[in-house]
């Protein structure tokens, strides 16, 4: 049995890493599409992506409780597949976190694609490069700052997640009891000592992560052209 505080910390880091990975895979094509499309639906999709910025986490948590429970098709499918419910599971938390941190990945990527990758990509295409090849050799390096910002912010934002996890997590040690929940519980039970330890650690970690973004963005200006 691990010390509860250590297991909460490890779980939080794992959740942030997995969420960031999923967001990188889903967010990149989405951001590229938003940056390049001429579709009239573009503002609608941009709005959908930005919604988690303004919605209270309780709204997201509430809809997840409704959408993921075992009586729904998705929840039922997951139950027969794995024998566990989607809510109160690590996978459920990943789904919640992906929704919750979506704008933090997509918005910096979209901005980077729009400012530094669209024109070089058109040039590469006119020189006969295959689209996917051009994307990885031209667009990605040109938008590296967007990628770094998106990855780091998604990671940091997931570290700080609380409301959604409180609503769909169920506080299960080593599975859904993340640091923010552990801190909440310590404060509620007046264990300020442990609350101090975990809060200080999270504060330091978040500071370092954000400092990295700002230093990186200053050090490595990307030349567009």
């Amino acid at each position: 049995m691990m010390v509860p505080e250590v297991s909460a910390l490890l779980l939080t880091l794992r959740l942030a890493l997995v969420t960031t990975g999923v967001l990188l895979i889903l967010g990149t094509p989405l951001a590229w599409w938003l940056a390049t499309t001429r579709s009239r639906l573009r503002p609608v999709f941009e709005t959908l992506v930005a919604l988690p910025l303004v919605l209270p986490p309780t709204v997201i948590g509430f809809y997840l409780l409704i959408a993921l429970n075992p009586t729904t098709p998705l929840g039922g499918f997951w139950l027969t597949l794995t024998g566990e419910t989607l809510t109160f599971s690590f996978t459920g938390l990943v789904i919640g976190s992906v929704l919750y941190s979506l704008p933090f990945m997509v918005q910096p990527l979209q901005a980077a694609f729009e400012t530094s990758a669209r024109i070089p990509m058109q040039l590469a295409a006119s020189l006969g490069a295959a689209p996917l090849d051009a994307f990885f050799t031209v667009a990605v390096p040109a938008s590296i700052r967007g990628f770094v910002t998106g990855v780091v912010l998604s990671f940091a934002h997931t570290l700080g997640e609380f409301g959604v996890v409180l609503m769909v997590g169920g506080n299960i040690p080593e599975r859904t009891r993340v640091v923010s929940i552990a801190i909440y519980e310590q404060v509620e039970t007046l264990n300020y000592q442990q609350a101090h330890g975990l809060s200080g650690l999270l504060l330091a970690l978040s500071f370092c992560v954000l400092l990295f973004v700002y230093v990186f963005n200053r050090r490595f200006p990307v030349h567009v052209g």
């Binding site: 075992p70 609503m167 169920g170």
Partner: peptide, 20 residues
């Protein structure tokens, strides 16, 4: 199998929404 609500109201909501 235990899932903990922050209070008995949340425990109730977990059951009523069929998540438990």
């Amino acid at each position: 199998k235990l899932v903990l609500g922050e209070n008995v109201g949340q425990a109730f909501a977990f059951v009523q929404s069929r998540n438990a």
